Amino acid sequence: MIAVIQRVTQASVTIDNQIKGQIGTGFLVLLGVTHTDTQEDVAWLSKKIVGMRIFGDAEGKMNLDLAAVDGNVLLISQFTLHANTKKGNRPSFIEAARPDVAIPLYEAMIAQLSADLGKSIQTGEFGADMKVLLLNDGPVTIIIDSKNRI
């Protein structure tokens, strides 16, 4: 499971010209699920995301987590994070999980992030054509792969 975490001052996702989810200060998280991911990946990655200390403290050091800044999460599924670009110019998405595997894990991540954060999170819609708007703060972007824990 791959997560691209972007520290934002605001972010939103629009589907069919309707805002589906939006946040102020927090994390925009793009989530890619592969066919070998499990509930263990969900639990580990959620705790990692919620505990990520990348907000500035009084001295300007990245030392605060989401809870410390009353931050929110906007979670967007993005299978293209598992693109293989080794051959040619057309990416292969063979490593991205099929919907029958990806949807339950995406929904599990929504529930796990909400539980770990202690409040509801905002989301996109799995498989939809989404327009994501964000104001990256910093810019700060962190990539975490649950398969690279060690």
Rank of each mutant, 00 (worst) to 15 (best):
H35P: 10
D129M: 13
A108N: 12
L66W: 07
F27D: 05
G124W: 01
T141H: 06
G124Y: 02
I150L: 15
A102M: 01
N72V: 01
E59H: 13
R53D: 02
D116E: 14
W44S: 11
I15N: 08
S114M: 00
I76M: 14
I2K: 15
F55I: 08
S77Q: 14
T80G: 12
L75D: 04
L30D: 05
M109H: 04
S46L: 03
G32A: 10
L117V: 13
A67Y: 04
I2N: 12
E40M: 10
I49C: 07
G21R: 00
K87Q: 15
F55M: 08
I144R: 13
L113A: 10
V42Y: 13
K147P: 11
M1C: 12
V132L: 03
P99R: 01
G51L: 09
K48L: 00
S120K: 10
G24Y: 03
A128R: 07
L30M: 12
Q122D: 12
K48C: 00
M130R: 03
A68S: 10
D145N: 15
H82K: 04
V33K: 01
I121W: 14
D116P: 04
A96P: 05
V8Y: 01
G138F: 05
D137F: 04
L133Y: 14
F93I: 12
L30Y: 09
V73Y: 04
L113D: 06
E95C: 01
M62E: 01
D145I: 07
M130S: 03
E59W: 09
A68G: 02
A58M: 05
A111F: 05
I144T: 14
L105H: 02
D65M: 01
A83P: 05
N17C: 09
A115S: 13
I121A: 15
W44E: 09
R90W: 02
G88K: 02
G51D: 15
L81C: 11
L135Q: 02
I5F: 08
S114Q: 08
Q39V: 13
A96I: 03
F27K: 11
A83C: 05
M52H: 07
Q10E: 14
L45F: 06
I143V: 15
K131H: 15
F27C: 10
I94T: 14
D65Y: 02
V13Q: 04
V132G: 03
A3N: 06
G32T: 08
A68F: 02
S12I: 00
G51K: 14
K47A: 07
A68M: 03
L28R: 12
V140E: 13
P104D: 12
K48H: 02
A128K: 06
D100H: 00
D100C: 00
T123D: 14
E95P: 02
N148V: 13
E107M: 10
D100S: 05
F79Y: 12
R53C: 02
A111I: 01
L74R: 11
K119A: 15
S12T: 04
P91N: 04
I110L: 08
G138H: 03
D65F: 01
S120H: 07
R7K: 05
I121T: 15
V69Q: 11
S114H: 03
L31P: 11
A68D: 04
Q10K: 05
L28H: 07
A83Q: 01
L105K: 00
D137V: 08
R90V: 12
A102V: 01
S46Y: 06
V42G: 12
S46M: 01
R149I: 09
E125C: 03
G21Q: 10
V33H: 10
